[in-house]
Amino acid sequence: MNVLYTAQATVEGEGRKGKGSTNDDRLNVELSVPKGLGGDDGPGTNPEQLFAVGYAACFHGALKKVAREAKASVDGSTIESAVSIGSGDDGFGLSVDLTVTIPGLAQAEVQKLVDAAHQVCPYSKATRGNIEVNLTAKTA
């Protein structure tokens, strides 16, 4: 792989209850444990929320790339991301639901673009075969 960019971050404290920041200090967040995992829903964010934003942003970039190649407009498109954590036979695991809404296109065209974006998105590639990722394509 020809590395084009590397994000660097540090977490300190008690893992899910501490502080996280990037080396350039563009992201500097307090971390807290959600009630569903035994926490108190403190003032901070959690890894699942950060992953949800990251995956949605990356997928949106992939969608725009495949749309440009297909000469399709995805103006006004949105990606809603839900990252769930749960326990199974082999310990904790994640699942992701992505809802992609593209106004002004037929349902078949939206589905085609979503499927293509899922093939090129780096987050989709990283999760493929590892966690369940559900895609929903919608028109507006």
Rank of each mutant, 00 (worst) to 15 (best):
A106R: 13
G86T: 12
V96D: 03
P122M: 00
T10H: 05
P47K: 11
V11K: 09
S77N: 02
L50G: 00
N130L: 09
G129Y: 14
R16T: 13
G42K: 02
A117P: 01
D97K: 10
E69L: 10
K112N: 14
R68E: 08
V29M: 10
T10C: 06
K112I: 04
G54E: 07
I102E: 04
K19Q: 10
T101Y: 00
G129S: 06
G36D: 07
G61L: 03
K19E: 11
T6K: 07
G38P: 01
F59G: 03
I131W: 03
V110H: 10
G13E: 03
S95F: 06
L50T: 03
G42R: 02
Q8A: 15
N28P: 15
A70W: 01
F92Y: 14
D75P: 03
L98S: 02
G44V: 12
A106T: 11
G18Q: 05
S21L: 06
D90T: 11
G20E: 04
D40E: 13
E14F: 00
G20F: 13
G93L: 04
G54V: 14
P122N: 02
G129L: 12
I131D: 04
E80H: 09
S124D: 05
S32H: 03
Q111H: 10
P43Q: 06
T10R: 12
F59E: 04
A57H: 14
S124C: 12
A67Q: 01
A56K: 01
C121E: 03
L50N: 01
G18I: 05
G38K: 08
Q119E: 07
S73M: 07
L135R: 10
D97W: 15
D24C: 06
S73N: 07
A52N: 11
A9Y: 04
V11F: 11
S95T: 13
G104F: 00
V114T: 09
G93R: 10
A57D: 10
T6E: 12
R68S: 10
R26F: 12
S84K: 07
K64R: 14
G38H: 11
T101S: 14
P103D: 04
T127C: 06
R68F: 03
Y123C: 02
A7K: 07
H118V: 05
V110M: 05
V29D: 02
E30H: 15
T99C: 14
T10G: 15
S21C: 12
A126M: 03
C121L: 01
V74H: 01
G38W: 05
H60M: 15
P103F: 12
V110I: 08
A108F: 05
V83A: 04
A82D: 13
V100Q: 09
S73K: 01
Q107T: 08
K65M: 11
A56N: 04
K112T: 11
A126K: 01
G104I: 00
L105F: 11
T22R: 07
S124W: 03
N23G: 08
R128T: 11
V133I: 14
G88C: 07
L105P: 10
I102A: 08
V100F: 13
G54K: 13
A62L: 07
L98T: 03
G44D: 08
D40M: 14
D75L: 04
L50H: 01
G13Y: 00
S81P: 04
I102W: 00
S84P: 09
C121N: 02
L105Q: 05
L50P: 01
P103C: 12
S124K: 00
I131Y: 04
K35F: 05
D41G: 09
K71W: 02
